[in-house]
Amino acid sequence: MMEDDFFVCGVPRKEKTKYFKGPDEKEYKIRYETEENGNKAIRIESEDGTKTAFVINGKMEDFFDDADHIKFLGKSKYAYRIKSDGKVAYKVNKKIFGWFEYIENFHFLKNSHLFFVSENEQLACVINGTEYGPYEYVESIVFGQKGNWAFAALKECIPDYGQRGKWAIIKNSEEIFEINDAYISNLSFINSDGPARVNCRLDFNI
């Protein structure tokens, strides 16, 4: 271990620098370590300090311009955000979903994962690797039983009226409802023994 200088209340201190020895026998500086649901992740940096990677349960992943925001689901599934050449993506286990200008609101559920992406000032929703959109705006993503999902999307915006315009509800890859000159929010699934039904709120004066 080496020592790095850092300051506490203006007074220099010494802190031990930890390293991870990779399968190539090289030692990589550890940025931080975290544990979740019985899993351990170590974030390391490349030899020149320009890239980062994760070591997940002892196995070293590939380096990217940046790797962060790791999430675990049980012992077999994990996901984290990666950056390369100014674009971002999510790596879910060994598969990469991307690349996009911007990613936000990543959700990791038992049978599904989703996130919103920004491209050319519009939003799209990526669910289990399939991209829906782009739209002017995306609202109220919900998940029901048996893998059902739905969200509301603003397809066309009325100029000078904010988020009012042509809205639609997309459920399980299909557009099931469309309305003009309104705003859709507060989606939820109605519990029933039959086909999954979606409830929503409609506003006409916003």
Rank of each mutant, 00 (worst) to 15 (best):
V138T: 15
F7E: 08
D24K: 03
E27N: 14
S192K: 10
K146H: 00
L109Y: 01
K21P: 05
Y161H: 13
K94N: 15
S112K: 01
F20Q: 06
F151I: 02
K18V: 04
C9R: 13
F72L: 00
P159A: 03
D193L: 07
A79F: 09
S140D: 14
G74K: 01
N111C: 07
G58Q: 11
M1H: 09
G165C: 06
S118A: 05
L154H: 06
I56W: 02
N39G: 06
L154V: 06
K71R: 13
V117R: 03
G147W: 02
E175A: 12
F108Y: 04
D24L: 02
N199M: 12
P195M: 06
F6R: 14
Y132T: 00
M2R: 12
I44D: 00
I127A: 01
E45L: 14
K91L: 06
Y19S: 05
N205I: 13
F106T: 00
G162T: 08
A153F: 08
S185A: 12
L202W: 02
W167C: 12
D181G: 05
P159C: 08
D5R: 12
G58D: 07
G22H: 02
K59G: 07
N39K: 06
Y90I: 10
N186F: 14
F106P: 03
E33G: 04
E15Q: 15
Y80K: 10
F189S: 06
I190S: 08
I170K: 04
D5N: 09
L187A: 14
L154S: 00
I179T: 12
I127V: 15
W99G: 00
K75R: 15
V198W: 06
I30D: 08
G162D: 13
W167K: 03
A152F: 05
G98Y: 07
C9Q: 12
D62W: 04
R31L: 15
A124K: 10
D65S: 10
E15M: 15
W167E: 02
E33P: 05
S173A: 14
K51L: 02
E104N: 08
K18S: 03
A79G: 15
G74N: 00
M2G: 09
R201A: 03
G147C: 11
Y19P: 05
E35W: 05
F72M: 03
Y135A: 04
G86K: 04
R81D: 05
G129M: 00
G165H: 07
E178Y: 02
T50Y: 09
N148V: 10
E61R: 12
I184V: 15
K146M: 00
Y28A: 08
T17Q: 11
M60F: 11
L202C: 09
E139R: 09
T50I: 07
K40E: 08
V8E: 11
G129Q: 00
F54N: 03
C157R: 13
P195F: 00
G10L: 11
C200N: 01
S188A: 14
E25N: 15
I141S: 07
F108S: 05
F143H: 13
N128I: 09
D160L: 14
I158H: 07
E45R: 07
N186E: 14
L154F: 08
K110I: 09
E45W: 13
L123G: 02
A150F: 11
H113E: 06
S140G: 10
N39Y: 06
D4K: 15
S46T: 15
R43L: 13
K26Q: 15
S173G: 05
G162H: 10
D66A: 14
E101L: 07
F64R: 01
E61C: 09
D24W: 04
G133D: 04
